Simulated scan of single mutants.
Amino acid sequence: MAIELNDEPIQLRRAADQTRARAAGPYSAEAWRPWLEAAAVVHDAVTEHAKATGQNRYEVEKALVTAVKNAEGAPEG
């Protein structure tokens, strides 16, 4: 069964990825806290989607990662 995702988890994952990119560098709790918080929001969204649709959480997250990667390679417009 194909996993369908709406835009919300995709946007959340993109935002978390951007936050992580800004935090890159030497670790400090202060610098990495925004990414950890954003990652927790993504985790919760994936868990809720999996629960609501009766799908495996791991499979939903895998589909999300693939969707974000595919969207990043897609031309704008």
Rank of each mutant, 00 (worst) to 15 (best):
Y27M: 01
P26Y: 09
Q11H: 12
D44Y: 09
V65W: 01
E8P: 11
R22H: 03
S28Y: 00
I10Y: 04
G54W: 00
P9Q: 08
E4N: 09
L64C: 03
V42C: 03
E48C: 05
W35P: 07
A50G: 02
K62N: 06
L12R: 15
R22I: 05
E37M: 11
P9W: 02
R14F: 00
Q11E: 14
H49D: 02
K51L: 10
L36F: 12
N6R: 14
K51E: 12
T19G: 06
R22S: 06
A63Y: 04
E4L: 08
E48P: 07
I10G: 09
Q11I: 05
A50T: 05
D17Y: 14
V68L: 10
D44H: 12
K51R: 15
R14V: 12
A29I: 01
D7E: 14
L12W: 04
S28A: 11
G77E: 07
H49I: 01
R20T: 00
L12G: 10
L36H: 15
P9L: 05
H43D: 14
W35D: 08
P34Y: 02
P34V: 05
A63H: 03
A50S: 06
K69Y: 01
A67C: 05
T19S: 07
A24I: 12
H43S: 15
H43V: 10
M1H: 09
G25N: 09
A67V: 02
K51Y: 04
A15L: 11
E76R: 13
R13Q: 15
A74M: 07
S28H: 06
L36P: 09
M1E: 11
P9I: 00
K62A: 06
E72D: 12
A40E: 05
E4W: 09
A50Y: 02
T47K: 15
E8G: 08
A45T: 01
N6Y: 06
A67K: 12
I10D: 01
